[in-house]
Structures are given as C-alpha cells and as structure tokens.
Design a binder for these strands. Structure first.
Length: 347
DNA sequence: AATACGTGGGT
DNA sequence: TACCCAAGTAT
C-alpha cells in the first residue's frame, strides 16, 4: 500500500478538484443545491442503483414531496408508489421513517454530524458520510463502490472490498486525504472519477486527471484492483401463481408478510412447488414467468383455479383501477403482462 | 461475519 | 445464457 506525504495529498486534492470543477457531473439534479433533504433522498435512491435509473425517480419524487415535512406527512402508499420499480423497498420505508424523525422528533432541525446522521433509519456509514460532507461540510470519506475502486487502484490496497472489515482499512488510509475545505466536492469528485476514467470495466486510466497518483497503473497491475471476492449465485425457487377472477372480473391478490422478500406487497397468491408436476389448476402458460432477485431466481407458473377455500385476512379481489393505484413489484407486473397476453391469444 | 434485500444494464 | 455490476444497510 502506498503512503502519501502531505505535499502529495495537497497536490492530489488540487488536481482532483480542478478536474471536478471542469468536468464533474454538475448537471445531476440532486447537485442543484445542497439541501440535506435533496441529498438524503438522492443518496437513498442511489444505494446499489445506477445514476441513469435514479434521475427520473428523483425528479418525480421531489416534485411530489418537495420537503422533509411533505414526506413525513405523506401516506406510505404514496411513498412506495413513487419508489415502485426501484427495488430494495426497505429504503423507501426507511427514508419515510427518517423524514418523520427529522420533521417531527427533531422539529425540522437536521442532524449535521456523521454520528447523528448514522442514527437515522436507512442511513449507514456511506450515506451518513455523504450527507455530512455534501450538506454539512464535514470532512469524512464517503466510502462506496466508487471510492473502493478508485483508492484501491491509487494506493494499491489489496484488502478484499467484499469484507466488512476492509472499510476500516480504506477509512484509515483516506481520511487524511479528504479535503477539509471542500469535503462534499471531494467525495463527489471521487464518484465521478469512479464512473468515468476509473470505471470498473475498460477504464481510461491514462487520461485520468489523477493518473500520476495511480500506483497500480504505474506498476502495470491496475487490472488486479479492486480485490473483490465473488458473490454466490441466486438459488432457483419454483412457485405456482393462483389466478382467480370474481364475478366482477376483479383479480385475487394476496399480501406478502411484513418482512422478507417484497415485504408487504400484493401479488397473485404464490405457492411453492417442487416441479411442474405439482401444478394444481389449469396450466395457463407454456413458459414460466421468471424473475431474478439479488439472491434468488424465481420461476412462477400461473394456474387458473376455480375458487379458494375462503378469503383469508391477507387476500383481496382488486379491480384494475385499484391495481394501478398501488405499488406493485416487478414480478407482479410481469405476471399481469403474462395474463394479458394469454387472454389476447385466446380471443 | 455472512446473508437478505430488487432491478436493469452490459458483456 | 449466465454472470457481474451499480452512490449500501440491517440484522
């Protein structure tokens, strides 16, 4: 691992920020100003999610709920509808809760320190540092995937970034490098660098504004950084999805448990099966609806059933209008599309 | 520490 | 196709 002296650190800050001022992504909607609410909403949305995907969601969210008070007073259904399709839905619920804490418990007085921000729901080490540095000018490193990638290469840090304890190694190495005068810009410059000249695949390191500080490139081993162990592949699970319409033509839905995958969302009633041999009703499709989550791959077979025993407390018939008004997970949208296609074919 | 937690895009 | 990635957090 490289160890920079004070002169190198100061030169690095200067070169990085000069580049950021010229070529940084100043146009990103959440960089319009440093209102902590805007920063928090954007950071929660950006967790494990691409910038291109977030932009549309962010603009729509801020138009609908422009202030932390507006979010705090909004019904959860509205928050989830605005989040529909973004995934990792606990982020939306945590953001909602965090807004309530700020607006109600703290009466609008934002926590400004890293430690206080960390206590908000959905705010972990990265997000606390991002908000503290961008909105409140605190000199803390916002260590995300970009940060790991950029500094693993610059400093030749060999620790596996998939391991939790590695965060501490990076923190110790880079905390002295963060520019105390412009910490928010420093962190955002690293992110911009990490998605451009120093991106994951096919980086353009030679033309990077900080190429002269890149120890891995200097030693011709840049492709070995960052060191990251592999994830396990998703486990396959099969289900049958019960399809039942009532006399009004409304479709039977079932609410998922309030914890676990797609917690609290309404979908067709899903029943695990071992194989296609176990389907209980009339098989509606030749091909299954498949959906890949981060850790699971689902194969879902829609089957037409004549009735269910008796509506349980978590089952309801929903009209098309009701279905459209509520937030539904991607899997359910795929199932609906599949049903519509089967219906069209049969006509 | 290891795992759960969504979705879309690139190769 | 299958796999990996993309501004992580909670438990």
């Amino acid at each position: 691992m490289e160890n920079w002296n004070q002169e190198t650190i100061e030169n690095f800050r200067k070169d990085l920020l000069a580049w950021y001022d010229q070529e940084g992504r100043a146009h990103l909607p959440w960089r319009e100003n440093t209102d902590p609410y805007r920063v928090l909403v954007s950071e929660l949305m950006l967790q494990q999610t691409r910038v291109d995907t977030v932009i549309t969601y962010f603009n729509r969210f801020m138009t609908a709920l422009p202030t932390v008070q507006a979010l705090a007073n909004a019904p959860e259904e509205q928050v989830l509808k605005l989040w529909e399709g973004l995934g990792y839905y606990s982020r939306a619920r945590n953001l909602h809760q965090a807004a309530k804490v700020v607006a109600f418990d703290l009466k609008g007085a934002w926590p400004e320190s890293y430690d206080d921000l960390l206590s908000l729901p959905g705010v972990g080490p990265y997000t606390a540092a991002a908000v503290a540095s961008i909105a409140f000018n605190q000199a803390v490193p916002a260590i995300d995937g970009n940060f790991f990638r950029v500094f693993s290469r610059l400093l030749k840090i060999d620790d596996d970034i998939a391991k939790p304890k590695t965060r501490r190694v990076f923190y110790d190495a880079v905390a002295p490098i963060v520019d105390p005068k412009r910490p928010g810009d420093f962190n955002q410059a690293i992110m911009d660098l990490g998605t451009s000249y120093m991106k994951t695949n096919d980086p353009d390191t030679l033309h990077s504004p900080v190429v002269k500080y890149n120890a891995a490139f200097r030693d011709g081993v840049e492709d070995q950084y960052p060191v990251k162990s592999k994830k396990k592949k998703p486990i396959l699970q099969r289900f049958q999805a019960l399809v039942l319409y009532n006399e009004k033509g409304d479709l039977l839905y079932e609410q998922r448990p309030d914890s676990g995958l797609l917690a609290g969302f309404w979908t067709l009633p899903l029943r695990p099966i071992d194989s296609i041999e176990d389907l209980q009703g009339e098989q509606l499709t030749i091909k299954a609806v498949t959906h890949v989550f981060s850790h699971r791959k689902w194969e879902v077979w829609p089957v037409k059933v004549e009735q269910v025993e008796k509506l349980t407390h978590n089952q309801r018939f929903l009209s098309p209008a009701e279905q459209e008004a509520m937030a539904l997970p991607k899997l359910q949208h795929k199932l609906l599309k599949n049903l519509k296609e089967q219906h069209d074919v049969s006509k």
